[in-house]
Design a protein around this nucleic acid. Structure first.
Lengths: 218, 218
DNA sequence: TGTACATCAGTGAACGCGCGTTCACTGATGTAC
DNA sequence: TGTACATCAGTGAACGCGCGTTCACTGATGTAC
């Protein structure tokens, strides 16, 4: 019933601050040695806390990991959205932004698009975020002039919904293009981030750009 | 100086047998819960041995992992080679064989093409195997009629070696095609194996085939 | 403004667990004469 | 063929370590009258 006090009390603000520092350290761990290196004890040690103290902020290691996964998805969604808002919402722009985002933190990229974390199953809401990402890409693909010959034509079992007859075919081709966008760029990107181009005379940046050009124009 | 005895004594044969059973169990662990779940204690437990006994066969967990990685590479090389020997050495055939090999044991595929194992650096000879795989693919790509428009043209910094002037250009384009082969199919395959197509109306087998068709013919 | 109480951040110690690895050993299997 | 010895597979116990998590607690910070 109190109105004057702001919704975030100082205590609550401090709490959020510590929470975000914990996440920060967690990301450092993951960036250094992968997801399996995520350790509450380790975070407590580097923060100068007792490990029991962390449980004021996260009830378990799994909950922390869940939040990190969610943050990763939200970060990618946000990055793509702001790129679109800045006029770089076409395929070429989104492709570049995606690559930058991935290079910025490879382990974060793999948390989203990499092999699943062994004993871990993500919550339902990240599935919605995954769909949102595909929607952004699909929207960008709708602006591409016409269906290019360099994109696979898959017979996806899309039953024609009776309600949305207008533009349904366009959506389907846009979706196919979006899927190719994702798989092809992921192919280059994930091999690059894994260091599989190291011993080859092949610049991954050029290859990525070449694949992107092919998707956008041809 | 003994000539009559075979190079593999019964004891040595037994030894190899146990070694390979250890690896078998190791693969089961990896298939179940990923590379980080590889545990000498766990293997010993399931084999009914004391954990100390395993050290007769592998001097450390790292050595075991190294052998597994090497075996994975060799398995892929062998699979591609026998496919080629059976007349399926064209791109379409190799693509299908690659997919089968990956689906047969996803974690093995990721051991070869996935994100690097955190604290682990593979030995030098697996790099040679990686090159061998690319050579097989490049050879298959050399048989593709002409440079298709659906393949990215990257300006790779290939300095023209003076000794091998004949067919150098063809090799370069074949190599580019081979790299596209690897990245594009890896894009579909790794997302499929990671379960990222689960919530989408998209059959990964069809998408894979579509990408493969595009590479081979267009 | 001061006092009584509730909230909550953080501590220290302990729990059980599984890990990789070492060490001194037992006992069976091979080898040499 | 039998005996003496070397080789080697496998054991049992222990090492130190780090992990996630719980519990009873102290002390500071807020809140209500």
């Amino acid at each position: 019933m109190r109105e004057t006090a702001p919704t975030t009390t100082p205590r609550e603000r401090y709490r959020q601050q510590v929470r975000s520092e914990i996440k920060e350290r967690a990301w450092e761990q993951i960036a250094t040695a992968g997801t399996s290196a995520l350790s509450l004890n380790g975070i407590a040690r580097v923060m100068g806390l007792s490990s029991a103290g962390l449980y004021r902020y996260f009830t378990s290691r799994d909950q922390l990991l869940t939040e990190l996964v969610r943050d990763a998805y939200q970060s990618l969604v946000g990055t793509l959205r702001t790129a679109a808002a800045q006029g770089k919402g076409d395929l070429a722009g989104l492709g570049q932004v995606l690559r930058m985002w991935a290079l910025d933190d490879p382990q974060r990229y793999f948390l989203v698009y990499g092999p699943p974390v062994p004993g871990y199953r993500g919550p339902a809401d990240v599935a919605a975020l995954a769909v949102e990402i595909m929607d952004i890409l699909t929207e960008a693909c709708a602006d591409v002039p016409d269906a290019p010959a360099s994109t696979p034509r898959t017979e996806t079992s899309l039953e024609e919904g009776p309600g949305q007859s207008v533009g349904r075919a366009e959506t389907a081709t846009a979706r196919r293009l979006a899927i190719s966008f994702r798989t092809r760029l992921h192919g280059v990107l994930s091999l690059e981030l894994s260091g599989h181009f190291a011993e080859m005379e092949c610049d991954p940046a050029l290859l990525y750009q070449a694949e992107l050009d092919l998707l956008v124009s041809h």
